[in-house]
Simulated assay, not measured.
Amino acid sequence: MSRTYKGFDGFTPLFAYAGKEGYIVHAELRPGKQHVQDNMPSFLTTAIRRARPLTSSRLLVRMDAGNDAEANVHVCLKEDVDFVIKRNLRRESKALWFQIARKRADASMMDKQKEYKRMSYAFHRQQQSMDTRIRTFKSPK
């Protein structure tokens, strides 16, 4: 036990659960002053290897922002598991991330507009072709 980042005496527990049922596949009770990321790659590797025999399905690893670290991504890639790690913005500008998202959304919207125009043009051409055929088969007045 030691002082946590919140200023209390306590622990930094780590738990790895499997499935919706929440079976514990790995756990550690560490001193409160220890950062959640300390020795996390080793913990993560052990948890993944213990979870593998429990299922024939692909594993999905989910971690919160305290585990937003390149080392964890490397473990997940090496162990060939799917993963979701919440982004920790730390000192990054939220405005910058908003601009990036906006640019991607705008680009995506442009792609959709182009596709819509292409489809509209194709539909219009098809409609003209059908109109021509229909006129061909109309009886004279």
Rank of each mutant, 00 (worst) to 15 (best):
R49Y: 01
R49H: 13
R49V: 09
R50W: 08
R50I: 11
R50C: 05
R52G: 08
R52F: 06
R52D: 08
R52P: 03
P53D: 12
P53G: 09
P53R: 11
P53Y: 11
P53N: 13
P53E: 05
L54T: 01
T55V: 12
S56L: 10
S56N: 13
S57R: 14
S57P: 06
S57W: 08
R58P: 10
R58C: 09
R58W: 07
R58K: 15
L59M: 02
L59I: 14
L60F: 03
L60M: 05
L60V: 07
R62C: 13
R62Y: 01
R62T: 15
M63N: 02
M63K: 03
M63S: 13
M63Y: 09
M63A: 12
D64W: 05
D64K: 05
A65K: 09
A65C: 13
G66M: 10
G66C: 12
N67Y: 14
N67P: 06
D68E: 06
D68N: 10
D68T: 10
A69I: 14
A69N: 12
A71Q: 12
A71P: 01
A71H: 11
N72I: 00
N72C: 11
N72F: 01
N72G: 06
N72M: 05
N72D: 07
V73S: 03
H74A: 15
H74L: 15
H74K: 14
V75P: 09
V75G: 08
C76Q: 09
C76Y: 01
C76P: 10
C76V: 11
C76M: 00
L77K: 14
L77S: 10
L77G: 00
K78N: 11
K78F: 06
K78W: 04
K78A: 13
K78T: 13
K78M: 04
E79G: 00
E79F: 07
D80Y: 05
D80F: 02
D80Q: 11
V81S: 04
V81K: 08
V81A: 03
V81M: 09
D82L: 10
D82E: 12
D82P: 00
F83W: 01
F83S: 01
F83V: 00
V84C: 07
V84R: 04
V84I: 09
V84G: 00
K86D: 03
K86P: 01
K86Q: 10
K86V: 05
N88Q: 00
N88T: 00
N88Y: 00
L89Y: 14
R90L: 03
R90W: 02
R90G: 04
R90K: 13
R91N: 15
R91D: 14
E92I: 06
S93D: 08
S93C: 07
S93R: 03
S93I: 11
